[in-house]
Design a protein around this nucleic acid. Structure first.
Ligand code: FES
Ligand code: FES
Lengths: 163, 163
DNA sequence: TCATTGCGGACAATATATATCCGTATTAGA
DNA sequence: TCTAATACGGATATATATTGTCCGCAATGA
């Protein structure tokens, strides 16, 4: 049970995009450079975010990516579902219906209690992630991990990346 | 982000073992037969349960597997951690430390807030699974999915499987 | 002594994740 | 109108993880 690296990439990059001026977009190459990521593969994840409406992609010269809505309206769950897909991690294969003591149709009128328990646990996981936004992550990071020097460095990079 | 089939297998089979008389063990072949699972591969998962102390393995003639402790003392979380491993699903690769605006040591004194949020969500997931036991699953299944016929069929199979 | 069973390592097959490349469409600006 | 920059989507390649089998060994009861 593992979560792909793309999720970590996407959340961090949404934080970067949230710091860009309203309406301005950052090209894929700049986003990849910021965290030293493979540009070609990053493109796949950005496309997934784009399909989910989390980012908006602008094509052509001066194109790139910008957030599709306010950072306070983008939760970590939104990003996870966009990158990893919406299917639950636990997949019931209905093994209760197989073997010498298989559950017949009448025994299967309700979903298997084991599957129910796992889906409930996953709902708790999703709820926790739904309660955290990109805006909050940026606020915490700004308070904990940015001194004046780093703040200056970041603004300089951002200005250059916007051309 | 997917959970392997072995978890579903293991939880269901712990339910079967919980129905066996105290101290009696069921061999791998019988357990595989019950849900029509590949015996050789199931053995791997049973070994993992054994290493975790969830089941006890008896070797030799009349050997097999039995629960290592009372069904009410075995949670779904115990089984998941035994089968899937104890590492969290979210793995932070510390990408904040890379690239042109990398976080230095002073900025990394606290764990990245994004990683914290994911680990907290995972803690909620684990807590939900820790609150459900094999005994409870069996009680619910007995009430919802076993009529007299199926109960009889199960006891017959169990008797035969115990030789 | 023998048949039965679990253990653990080696190995193979398959699926998924990671990564790259290229042709096409789109756009800003010269 | 032309050009360079950019995202898109499909095809492809590689790496890793999952799923699955097999076999020699140790343990056990009859
Ligand atoms: S049959 Fe799938 S979890 Fe019970
Ligand atoms: S650096 Fe890994 S989650 Fe932020």
């Amino acid at each position: 049970m593992k979560i792909g690296d793309g999720v970590e990439w996407a959340v961090h990059l949404c934080g970067v995009l949230a710091a860009a001026p309203e309406g301005r977009s950052l090209p894929r190459a700049k986003l990849a450079e910021f965290h030293d990521l493979p540009p070609a593969y990053l493109a796949k994840h950005l496309q997934a975010l784009s399909r989910a409406g989390i980012v908006t992609a602008d094509r052509g010269v001066k194109g790139g990516y910008r957030l599709g809505r306010a950072p306070a309206q983008i939760s970590l769950l939104d990003i996870v579902l966009a990158i990893e897909g919406v299917e639950p991690a636990f997949r019931c294969t209905e093994i209760r219906k197989r073997g010498p003591c298989a559950a017949g149709p009448s025994a299967c009128r309700k979903r298997c209690p084991i599957a129910r328990a796992f889906l409930e646990a996953e709902a708790a996981w999703r709820q926790a992630l739904a309660g955290v936004t990109v805006a909050e992550m940026n606020a915490v990071a700004a308070a904990e991990a940015f001194d004046d020097n780093r703040r200056r460095a970041f603004r300089a990079w951002l200005t250059a990346a916007l051309q």
